[in-house]
Design a protein around this nucleic acid. Sequence first.
DNA 1: ATGAAAGCGCTAACAC
DNA 2: GTGTTAGCGCTTTCAT
Lengths: 340, 340
Amino acid sequence: MEEGNLAGKKPVTLKTIGEKLNISATAVSKALRGDRSISEETTRKVKKLVEELNYRPNSIAKSLRTNETKTLGLVISDSTLSLFAPVIEGVEKVASEKGYSIILADAHSNVEKEKEAVRTLVSHRIDGFMLATSMLTGEEHKSFLDSFGIPYLFLLRKCEYESGNYVINDNVYGTCQMINHLIKTNSKRIHFINIAKSITTAAERERGYREALEANGIAFDKSIVYNVNPSFDEGYHQMSHILDAGEPVETVFCGCDMIAVGAMNSIIEKGYRIPEDIRLASYDDIEFAKYLRVPLTTVRQPKYRIGELGAQMLIEMITKDKDLHIDVVLKPELVLREST
Amino acid sequence: MEEGNLAGKKPVTLKTIGEKLNISATAVSKALRGDRSISEETTRKVKKLVEELNYRPNSIAKSLRTNETKTLGLVISDSTLSLFAPVIEGVEKVASEKGYSIILADAHSNVEKEKEAVRTLVSHRIDGFMLATSMLTGEEHKSFLDSFGIPYLFLLRKCEYESGNYVINDNVYGTCQMINHLIKTNSKRIHFINIAKSITTAAERERGYREALEANGIAFDKSIVYNVNPSFDEGYHQMSHILDAGEPVETVFCGCDMIAVGAMNSIIEKGYRIPEDIRLASYDDIEFAKYLRVPLTTVRQPKYRIGELGAQMLIEMITKDKDLHIDVVLKPELVLREST
DNA sequence: ATGAAAGCGCTAACAC
DNA sequence: GTGTTAGCGCTTTCAT
């Protein structure tokens, strides 16, 4: 038996240890936590027995007593796990370093399921939670989220009210930089297949797009801006519609990489070359953007960093100041590849 | 206030509810769990108040009492999240349907960290756990894993001892099918860039490779079989070495998609065409295999299904029979794309 | 049909 | 230095 309590045997508790040593469970508890009021002698004996019996503290009991579980909830929306994966890694890294575990819940891109996910997390008495690309960013959900009296923050997507906490990248800046770059490199007319308007990010990216056009004296043309769900299929179909309409297409900027992958396939299928005939760029820089048929020019969201900072800020809120206002906006970076 | 206990206010418990209704906490508890010994009248009143006060049961307290937490541990190895993502989704789906939550732990591709991850999960008193592409598949770790007296199983990767539980795909069959297909379509000499030997999967895939060669009367040539870590970089470098050596390369089969992506880039960089000059195939079918520079022919592991079945089997072990022996081997499927 | 009491394993407050 | 008591919120007996 290497460690732990063997199946079937009754678990080792503080009391078990105390009985064997003829001291109280309290003393054992104190000894284990290094309380100086316990003699060195006793502490030594306790630690030895703990080792021998492979005692593992019952964190459930501890949590009930101390009212903290050392767990963080992470709600994700399943649409694009390729976007979440690095965020999860970043969260997990910081959390585990600070002694927290992650309980994962999937919202399945559905408001009701997301609320249910939060309720489930709360019933597990997580110390705080994070919402990645949440659908609950609107003011109307604020009271729901606040009602639990637990710190929380948004990752990747901003909430719509002033007082909310979030860790995001600067979508206006990133888009503006990219559009600016495209214009400087000879794109005059840029089709924009943006993500759906229901997502707060969409408005920010549109703003960046408009600002860049304006700065370069190009008129905004509503008729070449589209909004679709962030999926391969919708990107593919929207691009096909545009191409089928027969109007000249010079440059396409997509609101996220998954849309761009769909658009890319449509463009290639119809016999156009990228970037010779049509230049293509987008946003996110998911892992495989560089491995696509044509490596994709895109704006890199610091996903891993967002995860790290999110966990760090949340733990800050939990341990230091519940009312901390988190408003972290990271600068994204242009990644120029062959698609432009 | 929409629901939950407001920040600052003291939490609503069974006792709170009981006091308002002038009944005992016990009665409230029973009413909530639909115990027939409580009158309809009372049950109705309890439910109404629960709604009003937004009572949420404290699952920590419940767990302490009942000795079950309704949580499942999932240990992943961070090497290729693109491989895990669908597995996690499958696990989460089944788990949440059955009322379980997932605690995630990352082993960071490191044996000691993986053991530490398991210990952390156990200290949270998870009801069972899963190890995805674990490094603890060897006999020497069995007693460690068994010592906690908690059901567990392996996902994606098999343990090396008879009595262990796992949900995997048939690597011998999958590889054999693919190699067989390649041979039938005119490949006679197939370079094999397999994953590292330390991974149990490697041996299975090599066996499939050898069986297919043998069945087709082709001699096994040790000199064109390589073992590298499953990463882009190692695939890229191994392929470059082979190409630089100047020997003729006709067909390359990689032990996993990430290696193939690296190999693909090397092949293209050196000016060869896929599949005209070199045919390329591999194993896994990660999400972006179909979006690569050259869409990849590969063996599809049923990743989502493995997650679903894993969670289902584990819950079975937890609720029905601790000693259930799980030995699920799913048949993979060939996916033929442009790289061959 | 309802309640009182005990206890899950732990920690905190306060004795001695 | 160490022990006693109490209680976190819940469920489970066993009375009534």
